[in-house]
C-alpha cells in the first residue's frame, strides 16, 4: 500500500438528493507515476478530484462510502487543509486563480499551509518558477489579467508551492491553444520527473496518454476500462468512442 501515492477505495458520492455521481470507484496512483483519468463530460472526473481533495461540501456533495489514502495516510475525514498538509495539492478545473491578487500573491497563497520563512518561501518559489519562466516577468500583474495559458501555468505553479507529493490536475488543457497544450504537457512531465506523483484528468486523451504510465476510463461514475497507457493508446476504439478527441500534434503515436 505504501508504494501508492494515492489510493481510492470503493468511493461513492452523491450531490444532495440527486443520483449518485460516483459509484464504488477504486483507483491508485503509484508513487512517481502519472495516472490519466479519462472520460466524457459528466463522467465524474471532477467529482473524484473533489472527493480526494475534500472539496465536495463546497459543491453540496458528500461521500456515501469509501476511503481516500495519501501516502498511506487515511485522509477521508480530514478537512482540505489537513490533506494539503499531508502532501496533496490540486489545480482546479478552469484554473481558478485569485483574480484580484498578483501572481506573486497567488503563489504565496499556494504555500500558505507550509508557513514558510521568508528565505524558504523565496527558495521554493524559485524552484517552482523554474518550470514557468513566463511567470517570472508577471509577478506584480493581477492574475485576472493573464492569458488563459498563463493562468493555467499559475494555477499549477500555485499548487506546487506547497511542495506536494501528489498533484491533482483537472483538465489543464481545457480551452488552450494546441501550442500551449504542448507546453503544459511538458511542464507536467517535468514536474513528474522531479518526483511528484500526478493524477491527470483530461478529455484530451491523446495528450494525457502520451505522458501517463497508466490510465482509467470513467463513465457514469464507474471505471469502465483500466490499463497501461500503452494498452489504451493502442486501442483505437477507446480514442474514438470514449474520448473522441483528436491527438495533439507530436503528442501521440496515432496520426
Amino acid at each position: 500500500m505504501s508504494d501508492c501515492a494515492l489510493a481510492v477505495h470503493d468511493l461513492s458520492v452523491r450531490y444532495g438528493a440527486a443520483a449518485t455521481a460516483l459509484d464504488g470507484l477504486t483507483l491508485e496512483v503509484p508513487r512517481g507515476e502519472i495516472v490519466a483519468l479519462l472520460g466524457p463530460n459528466g463522467a465524474g472526473k471532477s467529482t473524484l478530484m473533489r472527493a480526494v481533495s475534500g472539496l465536495l461540501p463546497v459543491h453540496g456533495g458528500s461521500l456515501t462510502s469509501g476511503r481516500v489514502e495519501v501516502l498511506g495516510t487515511d485522509v477521508t475525514r480530514l478537512r482540505p487543509s489537513g490533506r494539503v498538509r499531508v502532501g496533496l495539492a490540486q489545480a482546479l478545473e478552469g484554473r481558478q486563480v485569485f483574480p484580484e491578487l498578483t501572481v506573486a500573491e497567488n503563489l504565496a497563497a499556494g504555500g500558505y499551509v507550509r508557513r514558510y520563512r521568508k528565505a524558504e518561501a523565496r527558495e521554493v518559489r524559485e524552484r517552482v518558477l523554474h518550470h514557468f519562466p513566463r511567470l517570472q516577468d508577471l509577478m506584480d500583474r493581477q492574475a485576472g489579467y493573464l492569458s488563459g495559458g498563463e493562468q493555467q501555468m499559475l494555477a499549477i505553479g500555485r499548487a506546487m508551492m506547497s511542495q506536494p507529493s501528489v498533484l491533482l490536475l483537472d483538465e489543464p488543457s481545457l480551452g488552450l491553444a494546441p501550442k500551449i497544450v504542448e507546453t503544459v504537457r511538458d511542464v507536467i512531465l517535468d514536474i513528474n520527473r522531479e518526483g511528484t506523483s500526478i493524477l491527470l484528468v483530461e478529455q484530451n486523451a491523446a495528450m494525457a496518454l502520451s505522458i501517463a504510465q497508466h490510465g482509467y476510463i470513467l463513465e457514469g461514475g464507474r471505471v469502465v476500462r483500466e490499463g497501461s497507457a500503452a494498452e489504451l493508446r493502442a486501442d483505437d476504439d477507446i480514442v474514438s468512442l470514449y474520448l473522441g478527441v483528436a491527438p495533439v500534434e507530436g503528442a501521440g503515436q496515432h496520426g
Partner: peptide, 21 residues
C-alpha cells in the same frame, strides 16, 4: 500570511480551500 489568506478567501473561496486555507 493571514492577511493574504483572508484576501485569497475573499477573492475565490473554493480556490482558497484548495490551497489548504
Amino acid at each position: 500570511p493571514y492577511g493574504l489568506a483572508l484576501r485569497a478567501t475573499a477573492s475565490h473561496q473554493e480556490a482558497a480551500l484548495a490551497q489548504g486555507i
